[in-house]
Computed example of a mutant assay.
Amino acid sequence: MEKIKQIETSLDLSQDSLISDTKSSAGDKYETSREMIQQDLDRLQRQLKEAQKDQQVLQSIPSLPPTKENRARLGSLVKTETGLYFLSIGIGKVTCLDQIVFVVSLQSPIGQLLLGKGVGDSFTFQQKSHVISAIQQAEE
């Protein structure tokens, strides 16, 4: 994943900055600089963990066993009268083949509503009622 490579590169640069940061005559300035670099490192490490979790989710989709019932789950493309939803990781709105697809995680509010639903089931999201007209699984 390109995002992981970018975060790792940023981590390396921040760690190099922390190591090369030498104590200047102004002690407070040095401490502030080191603290800011450390905060950047902490933020980047959190981002890296999240990106790695997302990568694991994406890699697990093709290996999901088929189910007898066609229910919305990880890797499902769910069609409603108001749009298409792909249950995966939370990316947001994506245009694919001139069609808008909302790529949502199972932990998102709409992901929670879609999970386990079947064709013909309805749900309410943002005070609007939606009916599922089709579900396609990733392995199909």
Rank of each mutant, 00 (worst) to 15 (best):
E69G: 04
K93Y: 03
L48C: 08
G111M: 06
E8I: 00
A138V: 12
V78Q: 03
L64R: 11
Q52G: 02
I61F: 11
K23H: 05
D121N: 10
Q56F: 02
A72V: 01
A138H: 15
E139M: 05
L115Q: 08
D21L: 15
S63P: 00
Q59V: 02
G90D: 09
V57C: 09
A51G: 09
T67P: 00
N70M: 10
D98I: 06
L58V: 12
S63A: 09
E69H: 10
G116H: 10
L84H: 15
S122F: 00
V103S: 02
I37K: 01
E139Q: 11
I100K: 13
K53I: 07
Q47A: 08
E139S: 05
D98S: 15
V119S: 08
I89R: 01
C96L: 14
I132T: 05
I37E: 01
A72C: 02
G120E: 04
A26P: 00
G118M: 15
E50M: 07
L87Y: 12
S60W: 02
Q107L: 06
L11P: 08
T124C: 14
L13Q: 05
M1P: 07
R73E: 06
H130Y: 07
S76T: 08
G92R: 09
L84T: 08
Q47E: 15
D28E: 14
Q47R: 07
D16N: 04
L11E: 02
E31F: 01
S76G: 04
Q59W: 00
K29Y: 00
S122V: 00
D16F: 02
L77T: 14
I61S: 13
Q38C: 03
T32G: 01
Q59N: 13
K117M: 06
Q126A: 13
L97S: 15
E50C: 01
Q137I: 09
K49A: 08
V57R: 07
P62L: 04
S33W: 03
S63F: 08
P109M: 05
T67E: 15
E31Y: 03
Q6P: 09
Q136Y: 10
L48A: 06
F123Q: 10
V57L: 12
S14C: 01
S14M: 02
Q126H: 13
S60H: 03
K117N: 01
Q59F: 00
L106W: 02
K23M: 13
F86N: 14
M1C: 01
L74N: 05
P109S: 06
K128Y: 12
Q136V: 15
Q126T: 11
T95W: 03
